[in-house]
C-alpha cells in the first residue's frame, strides 16, 4: 500500500548545521496495517510524516502509494490519497468557517473543486450522520464556527474530516499529545474505532508508549534517522513499556531521551 525505499533526508546539507534527519529508510505498509511509531527526540518521526505527506521532498529514495511513485508530487496533489491529523488541534480545521463548511471541504478531497455549492441539503444530512458517530453533540452545531470549539472537539472533527473520504493512507502526527488526558483518551478511542471500521492503512506517531503498544498491529521504533526496531503483531501482544524501553537501550546503546515521553 505505502512503500518507502532508501529514503534519505538531510537538513542544511554542507553547512556546519547539517543534520541527518532520515537515513536509508525502508518501510512497507500492507493494506489495513495500523503502525505506531515511537522514538526519541530528533529521531526523524516528524520528518517521516512530512516526507510521506509531501511537505518536504526526500533527497533520495522513493515513496509510493499502491505502486505509484509520488515523491515528486506537491502536497496538495498527494492529499488525494493521504488523510492527516496534526498535533496542533488548531491545524486541521479552518477556525472562522462553520463545522459544515469544514466538512464540505473535507468531502471535496480528491475531486476538482468547481462552482457547485459546498454545503447542500443532502450533504448536510450526511454530515449530521457522520458527526453523530463522534458522540459529542457536534451534529447539533453544524453552523457554529469551528473556532468556538474546544481543543478536543476540534481534534475529533479533524479526525472525522481526515477520514471522511476513506483515504488510502491515514497519517496521525501525535494527534492526542496536545490534549488533556480525558480528551486524549476520547480521541484515542475514536481513532481506534474509525481505523478499524474503515480498515484504514494508518501510520501514527505517538509519545505515549502505552498507547503505542495498545493500538495497531505493528510498532516501529526510530532513533537518529533510522528504524531500529520493527515489532510484528504476534510479538506486540506480549510487549510491555519496560520491555520496550529495555530493548531500545540494547539496540541504540543509549537511554530513551525524550522530555515528553509518557510511559503509561
Amino acid at each position: 500500500m505505502l512503500q518507502l525505499s532508501h529514503v534519505t533526508k538531510l537538513f542544511f546539507p554542507g553547512s556546519p548545521d547539517e543534520k541527518i534527519a532520515l537515513v536509508d529508510i525502508n518501510l512497507n505498509l500492507k493494506p489495513g496495517d495500523f503502525v505506531t511509531v515511537i522514538g526519541s527526540n530528533g529521531a526523524g518521526k516528524s520528518t517521516l510524516m512530512n516526507i510521506i505527506s509531501g511537505v518536504i521532498t526526500p533527497d533520495s529514495g522513493t515513496v509510493s502509494i499502491e505502486g505509484r511513485a509520488i515523491q515528486n508530487q506537491p502536497e496538495h496533489a498527494r492529499s488525494r490519497w493521504i488523510g492527516r491529523v496534526f498535533q496542533d488541534p488548531m491545524a486541521g480545521t479552518a477556525p472562522h468557517m462553520t463545522i459544515e463548511e469544514n466538512l464540505a471541504m473535507a468531502h471535496a478531497r480528491g475531486r476538482s473543486r468547481g462552482l457547485s455549492f459546498g454545503v447542500t441539503g443532502a450533504k448536510r444530512k450526511l454530515f449530521r450522520e457522520q458527526l453523530s458517530r463522534l458522540g459529542i453533540g457536534l451534529e447539533n452545531r453544524l453552523r457554529a464556527k469551528v473556532g468556538q470549539l474546544s481543543g478536543g472537539e476540534r481534534q475529533a472533527l479533524s479526525l472525522l474530516m481526515a477520514t471522511f473520504t476513506k483515504p488510502q493512507i491515514l497519517l496521525l502526527d501525535e494527534h492526542t499529545a496536545a490534549l488533556d488526558p480525558a480528551r486524549a483518551e476520547l480521541i484515542t478511542k475514536l481513532t481506534d474505532s474509525i481505523v478499524r471500521e474503515m480498515n484504514l492503512t494508518t501510520l501514527m506517531v505517538t509519545h505515549n508508549m502505552e498507547q503505542a503498544i495498545r493500538l495497531g498491529n505493528r510498532l516501529i521504533m526510530m532513533d537518529k534517522g533510522r528504524i531500529i526496531l520493527d515489532i510484528s503483531e504476534e510479538r506486540k501482544k506480549d510487549l510491555t513499556v519496560e520491555s520496550l524501553l529495555k530493548e531500545f537501550e540494547q539496540i541504540s546503546g543509549h537511554k530513551m531521551a525524550d522530555d515528553r515521553v509518557v510511559f503509561g
Binding site: 505527506s53 492529499s79 477556525p95 472562522h96 468557517m97 464540505a104 471541504m105
Partner: peptide, 17 residues
C-alpha cells in the same frame, strides 16, 4: 470555500487537496 480556507488555514486546505 477553498479560497476562504486559504486565508484561514492554508495548511489544512492543502491537506485536503
Amino acid at each position: 470555500l477553498a479560497l476562504r480556507a486559504t486565508g484561514d488555514n492554508a495548511r489544512m486546505i492543502r491537506s485536503f487537496g
